[in-house]
Computed example of a mutant assay.
Amino acid sequence: MSQTRVLIVDDDPKIRNVLRMCLETEGYEIAEAGDAAETLSLVAKLPFDLITLDINLGTISGFDVAREIRQSSDVPIIMVTGKGDIIDRVVGLEIGADDYIVKPFHLREVLARVQTVLRRAKANAKPAISESTSAPDKVSRLVFDGMTAHLEHFELLNRQGVPCELTSGDFKLLSVFLNNPKRPLTRETLLDLIGGIEWTPLDRTIDNQVARLRKKIERDPSHPKLIKTVRGIGYVFAADVETI
């Protein structure tokens, strides 16, 4: 079995060394990067199971690096930063980070968060299922708002018939919504349906995934018509879904 590969990104070599020793002791395979260019180069060359990403990387911030990575990958990202301001934490989560750690940190906390995020990612890799016991027809196509989803092929065609670039996480979430149209779903239910993930009231995982999916399927993501927020509950897929 191959080792879990983690990329440690920090402009401070001392912090990289501490994190490396900590994670290697737990059996993880480690790669390091000290700036944005080196990070993006490594991500393009090697598959990683998780990235710890510092915000302060010089002229290009960790936020920008996370945005760039999220264009083509849903690899788990933990932001590691010295900034404790809540705004920085929210920004990191909204652009697609899966968790954050504020410096100075305790190594036991780092290990716990790494293990939790990796478990969550592993659970997300399971195929999304409907809350009902009935599975969709494997040769069916689902049509909504001019878009066509081929669930068995993990393919979504946009309103011009061109394939959309969805990550596996995007498609799992979309599949759950398409299998449960016009049914309000709590965040906890959505997490369960995409992989049985442990949930807390402060968990922003689903909110982040919904925001990413909206950008790819909504006509105007700032005023969503397909995935609507249900206050005090969660989300509902409001469009008509037809099987053809």
Rank of each mutant, 00 (worst) to 15 (best):
L166F: 05
P127F: 01
M79G: 01
Q115T: 10
S168W: 07
E94M: 10
K103S: 13
I129N: 00
D64W: 04
D145L: 08
A66S: 11
S130V: 00
L157D: 04
D74M: 03
L185E: 00
R159W: 08
D85W: 07
V65G: 00
V91W: 11
F171Q: 08
D98F: 05
N179A: 11
R67Q: 13
T186L: 10
S168H: 14
V176D: 06
L151W: 02
D64Y: 03
K83T: 09
V80E: 02
V65E: 02
V75C: 12
I87K: 15
H150G: 01
D98N: 15
S175C: 11
K126C: 07
G196F: 06
A121D: 13
V114C: 05
T189A: 14
V176L: 12
V110M: 14
V102R: 06
T167A: 11
G146H: 06
T133D: 13
A135W: 06
L174H: 03
T148G: 06
L190Y: 05
Q160I: 08
I95F: 09
L118T: 01
L202R: 12
I86Y: 11
G84F: 11
V110W: 07
L118S: 01
L107E: 12
A135M: 09
S140D: 11
A128E: 01
L107T: 11
K122A: 14
